[in-house]
Write a protein that binds this DNA or RNA. Structure first.
Lengths: 119, 119
DNA sequence: CGGCATCCTCCCGGATACTG
DNA sequence: CAGTATCCGGGAGGATGCCG
């Protein structure tokens, strides 16, 4: 009998609940290129709203993935940078990114084949 | 100027939109242990409802991640098994699983530290 | 520029009941 | 056992407007 590895509060679930939204992983991957400011992140992660960008960045700071540095200038400048923990996660999700780019074609083909049969 | 790697329809987004729900990754990880039947998957992925398990399995079959094999017996038996593509993805998300188990403590500590300051 | 605050919509996923 | 069908609430997240 196989064990039951995914109880309600196992680490995997907690992390997945945290990064398993539409944007968190994309932001982490974006910041792999180095520290960037609020607006630039928003531009690179195409389509994210200001509100959700704010929320996501805040919760990433809270979880120790990012640091937030505000410079007292006019106009204001705020930079976000991956922490060691964040860079560590970034490497891990980079595997997923790579997998996606390498295998998306297979997925699309499988989907078309499946839909073709039932259609 | 850094490029903009995450346009609306880039492969990464498509895959993340697909596996970035509460359950897909957990099911894939569960099936890494070998083919299993409907009810057993439901037991191991604690808390998933029957409806969502059905939906998730179907879309994974559609995307070429799983095969579904129904045996004409009484009572019925249906087994799900990772395809080559699915096993490939399973290896990748296994990194995430491992990361979660190794770093959840750091995340929780960071969170407590953060909440402690602002509270 | 980098946020909040507010309102509102959509749809994921839970609960329940029924079927081959 | 392995689904299907239906109803429903909550929360993610988009749109808009204001502020230091």
């Amino acid at each position: 009998m196989l064990p039951n590895p995914f109880e309600k509060d196992c680490p995997t679930r907690q992390i997945l609940d945290r990064i398993g939204d539409r944007w968190t992983v994309l932001i982490i991957l974006t910041l792999s290129d180095g520290p960037q400011r609020f607006t630039d992140i928003g531009k690179r992660v195409e389509g994210i709203s200001q509100k959700v960008l704010t929320q996501t960045l805040q919760s990433l700071v809270r979880d120790g993935m990012l640091t937030r540095t505000a410079y007292a200038e006019i106009p204001p400048r705020v930079e976000y940078e991956l922490t060691k923990l964040g860079r560590n996660l970034a490497e891990t999700v980079a595997y997923l990114d790579r997998w996606a780019r390498e295998h998306i074609d297979e997925v699309i083909k499988a989907r078309e084949a499946y839909d073709g049969v039932s259609a």
